[in-house]
Amino acid sequence: MKKIFVVLSLIATGSMFLSFQQKPFDLKASMKRGEELYISYCLSCHMDQGQGIENIYPPLAKADYLMADKNRSIDQILRGAKGEMTVNGKKYDMEMPGFDLTDEEVSDLLNYIRNSWGNKGAAVTPADVKSVRK
């Protein structure tokens, strides 16, 4: 008899590749997905209420620098940020690495950041991210 050892597991869902373009943009759902990403990638520096760390990591909550330019934020998430920046009147100069995220993920993440802790901003769509990525 042939004795074999088997490892079997379920086929993973391909849900992360679902298309978002056809449906009307659901900001709430996007923010919810973005919160998970925020916890994984951003929280350790920008902290749980987006308050940042004084003099080291800039705040995201009610941050003028953040809300001033949506495309700059997309670019910074994709390619990182380097050099001095002024946020709410204070200067910061730490390097942030770029993150390897999909268009959908960057849009989810920014929708969460731009609409939490007192922030209110227009939705960022995967298409917006795509155009900055190019």
Binding site: I39, S44, M47, I53
Partner: peptide, 16 residues
């Protein structure tokens, strides 16, 4: 964990 949140200790200054 910092207050139950998973954070990256390599990027968190002790002062924070």
């Amino acid at each position: 964990h910092l207050n139950g949140n998973a954070i990256r200790s390599c990027s968190l200054p002790v002062s924070a």
